[in-house]
Structure formats: C-alpha cells, structure tokens
Computed example of a mutant assay.
Amino acid sequence: MAVARYKEPLTLTEHAPWAQRFWDALVPLKDRVARHPLFVEMGDGSLSLGRFRDALLHFYPLVEHFPKYMGLALAKTRPGLYPGHEETKNWLIGNIKIEQRHAYWYQDWAAGFGLDTERLEHTRPPAAMDAVNQFLWATG
C-alpha cells in the first residue's frame, strides 16, 4: 500500500531574509488574531465541543483554498522584470504543495471531531468568517 502523499516527511529550511522581514512585520497582526476569544479558549481547553466543530467546519474553506490563493499571486510574478519576483516565484512554487498538505492534515483533524470530508467540502461559512476568502480571491 502506498503512503498517502500528505504523510511524506517535510524538510524544514530557514526563511529567506525577505520572507523573515515579511513575517516579522506581520507578528503584531498575528498576535491580535491569536488573542481572539476563540483561539484563547481553544488554547486553554475551555472551548466547547460544538464551537470547536463549528470553527473547524467554517475555517476549512480558507485552508483548502489557500494554495489556490497562492497560485493567483504566483501568476502575477514577473521574473526578470521586477526585483524579487524570481525569489517570490520559487518560494510560492515550493510552498503551494506544503499548503495543500495542510488541507489534508486538516481533513484528518476534523474527522477526529466527527466532520467528514464531504461535509467540509460543502460548508458555507458565515459572512464574517468568509470575508477573508472573499478578500484573498479578489486580491489574489
């Protein structure tokens, strides 16, 4: 029996300097998200099972579509014409596959909470949770 493609080992590498600067600039925003009550309750174990399942269900479209959003950005790269585009292209190509693996792992995680892949694939998140999907699709 073949090993599932999302269970192949990952190779960890250092961030390119530009990617590290990008990440460092995002840390304050990331911290705001991490302090949202949903994530605080998830972290301290007080999030109810129902809310946990709802969150898993409604965040799935973001996780599943994220490699596609990265593909939209990839399509806009112009290596040779603009500085940094070659590096960006190569980084996106390498990381799209990793982001796809996250979707498979997420499906396994959700299955542990009784959410099968069919239910994940057919969910329509509430507008507030879907806003990020709409934004990434429109700006990708």
Rank of each mutant, 00 (worst) to 15 (best):
A34S: 02
A34M: 12
A34K: 07
P37C: 09
L38T: 14
F39L: 15
V40G: 09
E41D: 12
M42V: 06
M42Q: 11
M42S: 14
D44S: 06
G45W: 06
G45M: 05
S46C: 13
S46E: 11
L47P: 02
F52M: 10
F52T: 14
D54H: 11
L56H: 07
L56T: 02
L57R: 08
H58L: 01
F59D: 07
Y60V: 08
Y60G: 04
P61W: 04
L62N: 09
L62D: 00
V63W: 03
E64Y: 10
E64N: 09
E64L: 05
E64K: 13
H65T: 11
F66K: 08
F66S: 15
K68C: 04
K68T: 13
Y69A: 08
Y69W: 08
M70E: 15
M70T: 05
A73D: 08
L74N: 12
A75Q: 07
K76R: 15
T77Y: 01
R78W: 03
R78V: 10
G80V: 07
G80Q: 12
L81M: 09
Y82R: 14
Y82H: 10
P83H: 05
E86M: 08
E87S: 06
E87V: 00
T88F: 03
K89F: 09
W91H: 02
I93H: 05
I93D: 14
G94E: 10
N95K: 03
N95E: 13
I98K: 14
I98D: 13
Q100N: 06
R101G: 03
R101S: 00
H102W: 01
Y104F: 14
W105R: 07
W105K: 08
W105V: 04
Q107V: 14
D108S: 11
D108T: 04
W109K: 11
A111P: 08
G112L: 11
